[in-house]
Design a protein around this nucleic acid. Sequence first.
DNA 1: ACCTGAACACCGTTCAAGT
DNA 2: ACCTGAACACCGTTCAAGT
Lengths: 238, 238
Amino acid sequence: MAFMSAVRSRRERPAKPALSREWIVAETIKIMRAEGLEKVTMRRVAQALDTGPASLYVYVANTTELHTAVLDELMGSLRTDATDKAAMEGWRAELHAVLHAYSDVLFTYPGLARSALVLRPTGSNALRLYDRILALLLDGGVTAARAAWGVDLLLQRVTANAAEHSKPAIDEAPADVECDTDGLAAGLRGVDPSIAPHVAEHAEELLSGTPEQRTSWAIDALINGIASTPHPLEGAHK
Amino acid sequence: MAFMSAVRSRRERPAKPALSREWIVAETIKIMRAEGLEKVTMRRVAQALDTGPASLYVYVANTTELHTAVLDELMGSLRTDATDKAAMEGWRAELHAVLHAYSDVLFTYPGLARSALVLRPTGSNALRLYDRILALLLDGGVTAARAAWGVDLLLQRVTANAAEHSKPAIDEAPADVECDTDGLAAGLRGVDPSIAPHVAEHAEELLSGTPEQRTSWAIDALINGIASTPHPLEGAHK
DNA sequence: ACCTGAACACCGTTCAAGT
DNA sequence: ACCTGAACACCGTTCAAGT
C-alpha cells in the first residue's frame, strides 16, 4: 500500500492548502533552512507549493518583499527577554546573550545575514530587538545619545559578522581554495614582509583566538567604546 | 560623414583589443561605475567587449573570481599613505582619513561594498590597507593583540555601512516606499510605545546627526573600545 | 592551440486568458 | 473575481565544434 502513495501525484497532502501570505513565508523558511537563501527563488517556492510562480505575486510584490517578510518572521522566533542566568549577571551579560541569540538565528539560515544587512529590517519583531538593546545600554548607564547611535553599531557588527562567516549553503568549490581559516591563515603567515610588514610581524595575533573569543571581545569593545566616546550633539557641559 | 560611423558596426575601435584578464577587469569596472555591480554580468561584460560570454571563461574562472579581481583592483586606487594634513594631526586623524578614503571607493561603485563584505579581499592591495590600519593602531599605542583584532572591526564597520547605505544602482521603486531616511524617520517617530517604549522615547536621538557625524563618531567609538578593552589572550599581568 | 556558437538549466516578472 | 499558463527578457556555465 505504502508505495502507492508515490503515484497519487500532487495530492499527497489532503486538499492542498489554500495559498496565503503566511503559507508562502512558512514554506520559504523551510526551504531556506534546508538549502540556504540563494535556493529560495520564486520558482522554487512555487514548486514546493505545487503551483506556478505567477501565483505568488498575488500575495507578495516581489522577491525582496518576500525576503523581508521572512527575515521579520524569523526575528519573531528570537527571545529578547533575558535568560535568568544573564539577568543575574547584569545588563552587560544580558546584552551579550541577546546579541548571541540574534547571531544564532543568522547563522542557522545560510544567506539570511547577507539579506539582513541590506534589507534594514523594520518589522515589529526587528523593532523589539532594537528596543531591547537600547534598553540594556540605558540600563548600563550609557547616555541616551550614545546608546541611540550605539545600537546600530552592535547590530551591524553581529549581522556583518554572520554575513561574512556563515556558510554559503551546501555546494561550494571543495578543494581549489582551502575553504576557511586554513587558506587565510596560510596566506597571512606567508605574507611578504616588504609589502605588509606589520601584518607579517603580527600574523599570530591576527589569527589568534576562537571565533567565540573574538566575538565576545568585539562586543565588549563596542560597548566600551559606545559608553565612553563623547557624542557630538551632547551638551558639552556635563 | 559622422553619421556613417554608426553603420560601421562592431569595428568602431581600431582593431578590437585582444581579450585579456586586465582588459576584462577594466571593462567590468567601467560598467560597474556607470550601472552598479548588479549589472556586471558575464553576458553584459562580454557584450561590451564585443564577444560571447564563453570567451570570458578563458581568463576568469567564474563570476566570483571576476568580482574578487575587480575589488582588489579598485583597492589599488586607494591612497593609504597619509595626507599631509592628517599626518600632522596624528595617528587618529590618519586612521579617520584612511577609512574615509576606503569608504569613498565603496560608495563610488554601487554594490561593491556588498561583495567586499563576503569576498574577504585577500589581494595585495587589500593587504596593504590592512597593514596600514594595523600600523596606525600600533602607532597610537594600542596593544598588538588588541590592534590585531581591532583591524577587522574597523574595516567591517566601514564596509557594512557602505553595503547598507550605498544606492542599489539606478533603478528602484520610486514612490511606493519613501526611499531612505524619510520612510525610516516616519516609521521610527510613529512607533507604537507599547511594543518599543525606549525607541519611542528616544526617536529623536536615534535619528539625529548627519551621516558624517555618525560615521566619525562610530570610528572614534571603535578606536576607543579597541584600545581600552582587555584582550583574553593578553598576559593578565601588566 | 585557442576561441566561441549554441545549448542547458536556470532566473524574476508580467499579462492575457481561463475558471 | 481570483488565479495561472505561457511568454518575455534575462542569468551562469559548459562543451562540441570551428578557426
